[in-house]
Design a protein around this nucleic acid. Structure first.
Lengths: 229, 229
DNA sequence: CGGCGTTATTGATCAGGGTCAATGAAAGCG
DNA sequence: CGCTTTCATTGACCCTGATCAATAACGCCG
């Protein structure tokens, strides 16, 4: 059994809507699972028999064409929810891109539990609405922005999402990306070469520093915002 | 007051979850409104004080860059729901692209009503999850597909969504698009010229007929599927 | 520390799709 | 019915970002 009361995402995940006794019930249903970096949890097109909360680590949602081109369609951080409630197959695959720890439920069991707990369902609805907003803003980037606008937008989004206090204006000026260059390319709908060139150019122009492969320091937030279009 | 029981989308909209007495309550809150083609209901970035069900007509959700490039991020058909419950500003604008009839609610009133009616909220959750899946499949198209793949994918999606019996395998072979070429371009992340060229090419190759500006007849579904990648 | 595998950068070239411009076809209207 | 306006098609040219290829930097491990 899982101890939900001491869970690290207790107050941020959808479970935050539950009372201690309800949480106990949910705890009986869930089981913790570590997944290692690179491991794929759910495959695109397959029936997705599980849903989960992310306790730790980062995962990616990937859609792919028949000939292997990949687009990352979502990034999942701790306290986020993954899987597809209400019985549809997953339209994308879900893979860990770092060591991760999940709290996994059988989808059918979870669906039933959710049916009896409107507050949980509302939390899930709010979260899904937020995800939909984010996905739609990303569609503008994918469909209409240039490579340089994409790169700048990406850094701003990451500064926002990786900042310690969510929602606050103090987006992190320096942070470590959980992605390599190829994954950034798959997020932006670019090739790895173009992505690399854009990063190099931003560094050359003094907008950012790149102290190591995955570290980024933002020097000129205003210019970056300008550049993002 | 609105007569929900005789509503044309009674069994398809989220209201289908409600009992007659609940429906009566909701009817008191809603008001019908006609909107003419081209009229914008909600503006990107503004607070969105209303939500609505679509009874008739087609609307588009549009995200735009500061310099005026536009990306259509969603298409709304009869029985679909529009607006942003739970108090966030709309991240896109909503415009009618044909004469339309809506059933409009004040967002706050609707939120409160939804809070008291879990079944309604679940219907909304299911719908939102479906929209999110659709948006993410579209991200693959925008980020990774070529112009010809985009055009073919578009026609297949439209054949599916415009078919009279939803879900059935009998996607309409001939149908009338509710969009002009510029709007198709804004859906696909292309220019109007490229869109036009792709349509002309598909006709030249015998995959489709174009009997009038907005009419499409699919001749070779298999080839179109192949082409969509 | 040195060697190797992986990942990122840089360069040269090319092509898909954008841009600019002109023409053509439909729809709206007096 | 013809005129105007809007929308779509077609053509010529160019540019951004993809592709192909080589090199460089990092990280891992013995």
């Amino acid at each position: 059994m899982t101890d939900c009361l001491s869970c690290i995402v207790r107050n941020r995940a959808i479970c935050a809507s539950l009372r201690p006794d309800e949480l106990l019930l949910l705890g009986w249903m869930g089981r913790r699972q570590r997944v290692s970096s690179g491991h794929t949890l759910l495959w695109e097109g397959d029936d997705a028999p599980v849903v989960a909360n992310v306790l730790e680590g980062v995962l990616k949602l990937v859609a792919a064409t028949a000939d292997g081109r990949e687009q990352i369609v979502g990034i999942v951080f701790p306290s986020d929810f993954i899987g597809r409630p209400f019985g549809k197959e997953s339209p994308y695959s879900v893979s860990a891109i770092s060591e991760a720890e999940l709290c996994i439920f059988h989808r059918d069991q979870f669906d039933e539990f959710a049916g009896d707990h409107p507050d949980l369902q509302q939390k899930l609805l709010r979260r899904t609405l937020g995800e939909l907003d984010r996905a739609r803003r990303w569609m503008l980037l994918l469909g209409r922005k240039s490579a340089s606008e994409k790169a700048a937008s990406f850094l701003l989004e990451m500064a926002e999402r990786l900042s310690p206090s969510p929602g606050a204006a103090d987006a992190a000026r320096g942070f470590e990306l959980p992605f390599g260059r190829q994954q950034i390319a798959d997020i932006l709908g670019l090739t790895i070469e173009t992505t690399s060139r854009q990063f190099t150019k931003m560094r050359a122009d003094g907008l950012i520093d790149l102290p190591s492969r995955r570290k980024v320091v933002i020097n000129d937030l205003a210019a970056l915002n300008e550049m993002a279009g």
